[in-house]
Design a protein around this nucleic acid. Sequence first.
RNA 1: GCGCCUGUAGCUCAGUGGAUAGAGCAGGAGCCUUCUAAGCUCUUGGUCGGGGGUUCGAAUCCCUCCAGGCGCGCCA
Length: 586
Amino acid sequence: MTNHEVPPLLGQIAHAVSGAIDRARPELAGAAPVVRRSEHADFQSNAALALAKRARTAPRGLAAELIAHLGDSAIGAAELSGPGFLNLTVPDEAIWRQVSSRLNDARLGVGVPNAGQRTVIDYSGPNIAKEMHVGHLRTTIIGDSLARVLEFLGAEVVRQNHLGDWGTQFGMLIQYLGEHPELTWHHGEVTGRSTSAVSVLDAVYKAARRQFDADPDFADRSRARVVALQSGDAATLAMWREIVAESEKAFRDIYDRLDVLITPEDSVGESFYNHLLDGTVTELVDAGIAVESEGALVIFSEEVTGPDGEPVPLMVRKRDGGYGYDTTDLAAVRYRTGELNAERLLYVTDSRQALHFRLIFEAARRAGWLTDDVPAEHVAFGTVRGPDGRPFKTREGGTVRLMALLDDAVTRARAVVAEKDPDLDPAELTRIAEVAGVGAVKYADLSTSRVKDYLLDVDRMVSFTGNTGVYLQYAHTRIRSILRKAGNAEVSVDPRVRLEPAERALTLGLDDYGTTLAEVSDTLEPHHLCAYLYALARDFTTFYETCPVLTADEPVRRNRLALCRLTARTLEHGLGLLGITAPERM
RNA sequence: GCGCCUGUAGCUCAGUGGAUAGAGCAGGAGCCUUCUAAGCUCUUGGUCGGGGGUUCGAAUCCCUCCAGGCGCGCCA
C-alpha cells in the first residue's frame, strides 16, 4: 500500500490543455482550461469558446490551434466538435493505471488539501434537560459529516458541542427538583429505550414552568435559586452538575445510535464561557466597540439596520447586568481563535440565525479576533417540515423526539428487511434493520442542499427504492458478495485490457472521488458527496448488469475484480464520511 | 420598511455560463434455470415563477416585478 495522492485524470487533462493554451497563444497564458466530464467523450474543454473573443478569432479555429499544441500529454485523442468544443479521450491504459494506483493506496489516492488547517466545527448543541428533537437532527448529522470529510482531507478538526447548559430556566428546574425529592430522574432509575433521564427532566421542567407561572412564591424561590446558581452555591451547583451529567448520558445514547463521532470531550457548553465573559466585554468596551444604550451595553452594526432604520445591536450586557447568548457567542469566537488557534470557524445551525452570526462575525472582526485569513462561516440549513409542508410536529402538535423518529424508521425498516429475506436470523435482522433505518434517515437529510427547508417523510425514507441510503448499501453488498465468491484474493490490473463502456463510466467516476470531497470542503454541502455516491452506485449497477465478473476469462476477470474492489472501497469510504455504515450483506 | 433565503416534471429534489435541462417517487409496458429483483430496461410528463438585459451561448450572471418562508435590542 502506498500513501500518496493519485492526481485525477481531469486535473491531468486540464493541465495539458493549459499547456496547449500557453503554447498556442502566449498572450492568453494562465486562462482557465475549462475541462469537464463529457457525454460525448471522456472529457471536454470549452476553452476555445470562452477565449475566442479575446484571441480575436473564430472558436473552431482556436480549438484547432489548441489541438495542434496539445503535444505529448495524457490525452489520447482530441476532436473538434460543434461550435468549438474539444472532445478529449484518454487511452484505456491510462485509465486502468488510475484504478491500479488508487487500489494500491491506503487513501484511495485522495490528497490532503486541507492539511493542518485547524478547523473548529460547532454543531449539535442540544439543550440540557430537554429532549433532542428532529430540529437537532440536521445540525448533528450535517456537522458530523462535514467534520469527517474535512478531517479526511487533512484538517485538524476540533468539534465543539455548544450545549445549552446555562440560563435562568435552571433556577426553576433545580428548585422544583429540590421540592420534590420523590421524583426519579436518574439514568439507572428510568427504564425503557424511548424514555430517559432527559425525557423525565423535560417533563419536570414543564411542570416547574407551570408552577412558576401559577405560584408567585415558587417563582420567587426559583429566582433566588438562579442567583444561588450564578454565585456558585455549592449545593445548587452540585444539582446542576447532576442534571448536566444525566442529560449528557441521554445525548450519548442518541449519538451512539446515530453513529456520530461527537464525544463528551467535545462538550463545551455555554457555561464554559462564564469565566471569560467579563474579559470579553472589557476588551470590547476598551476598544470602543461596545457602547452604552438605554442602560445596556451593545455593539451597533456598521452594516445592518433594523425596522427603525437604526443600526442593529448585539446585546453585550443586559440592563440588569446579565449576559445573554450574544456575549457567549462573542466569547466563543475569541476563545476559538485565541486559545484553540482556529484557522477556520464553522457554525452548523439553522438559517434563522443568519443575522445573528453576521453580527457576531462583524463584531469579532472589528475586535480583531477574526482576521481576513480566518474564514468564519455560518453553515445554515432550513427548517424540517412534515409531509404536509408544515413544520414537523406530532399529531398533537408537539415536537417529535429524535429517538422516537429513529425507532419509527428502524421498526419500518425491520418490516421491509424481514419481508425481503424471511429466513434471516433475528440478530442479523436487527442489525441490518438498524443500519438501514438509521442510514435512511441520515441519507435523506444529507442528500439535499442544506439551505432549503427539508421535507421529512418517513414513508419515503424507508421505501428503500431509488435514491436512498439503502440503494448505496445494497450496491455495496452486491459487490462484497462477488468478492467473497472470488475468495477475496488480492487483485491486480492488466492495463492492456480494452475497456467496455460500462467499465469506462465506472472508472472515470472512481477517479473523481477526491475532487468531490474537495468540493464538499469548499461548499460545505455534503449532498455533493451523496450525489457522487449515487451516481457511482448506478454506474456500478450498469456494470453489474452488462459485465459478468466471475465467469469472465482472464485477464478481464482480474480487472473486473479490481474494479469491484475499488468500487466497494470507495462506496464504503464515502458512506463512512456521511456517517453511514456499509454492511457486508443485507 | 429593510435584509436574508427559496421558486426547475403531478410530488420530492439535482443541475460548476456551454451541445437534447436530469434523477428518484408516482403512472404505463416489460425482465429472475445466469455474480443478491432492496435491482434493471423501455415509456408518459417541463412557458426552469413573470418580464427585461449582458453574452456567440443563460435554469445559472445583472436589473425589475410576483409568490412563499425566515429575520430585524434585553429568549437561543
